[in-house]
């Protein structure tokens, strides 16, 4: 049964096992939660803000037998989330970790949080989970 209450998911940790996760990265699970009927919003903080940067394709390293190592693509998961209409914020303070130009190279539709007050209001959610 769909849960009409709302949840803010805060993602801080990133790159949790590219070979191990492949398609099932943390943003994939966020999307699954959303599709299973939950109302979720996403805030990227700290190292996870890097997921909001539009890197373009990054070639995978070689694996065995002429194939590439199968790796996760969390930005693909992020784009799918955005396409589903899930609000995604990224904190500018976190983006600074990735260099001065990072905040100018965001994936379209990601919302930039410049000051704490600009971001999602915790009081507006039934639940706030670090994810």
């Amino acid at each position: 049964m769909a849960d009409s209450r709302s949840t803010l998911l805060i993602v801080e940790r990133a790159h949790r096992g590219a070979v191990e996760t492949q398609f099932s990265d943390e943003l994939y699970f966020v999307r699954a939660l959303h599709r299973m009927g939950g109302s979720v919003d996403v805030l990227l903080r700290g190292p996870a803000t890097g997921y909001a940067i539009d890197t373009g394709p990054v070639p995978a390293p070689p694996g065995a037998h002429g194939t590439d190592l199968p790796l996760a693509d969390p930005r693909r998961s992020l784009r799918a989330l955005l396409a589903d209409g899930v609000p995604v914020w990224a904190e500018e303070a976190g983006l600074a970790l990735f260099g001065a130009s990072a905040a100018t190279r965001l994936i379209p539709d990601v919302r930039l949080v410049v000051r704490d007050d600009d971001g999602p209001d915790w009081s507006a959610y039934d639940r706030v989970w670090f994810f």
């Binding site: 590219a18 890097g50 890197t55 990054v58 390293p61 990735f98 260099g99 130009s101 990072a102």
Partner: peptide, 14 residues
């Protein structure tokens, strides 16, 4: 370089 690209850091910022 691979880790750098995966994390979205531009070479100009390194």
């Amino acid at each position: 370089a691979f880790s750098l690209r995966r994390r979205g850091v531009a070479e100009e910022d390194v």
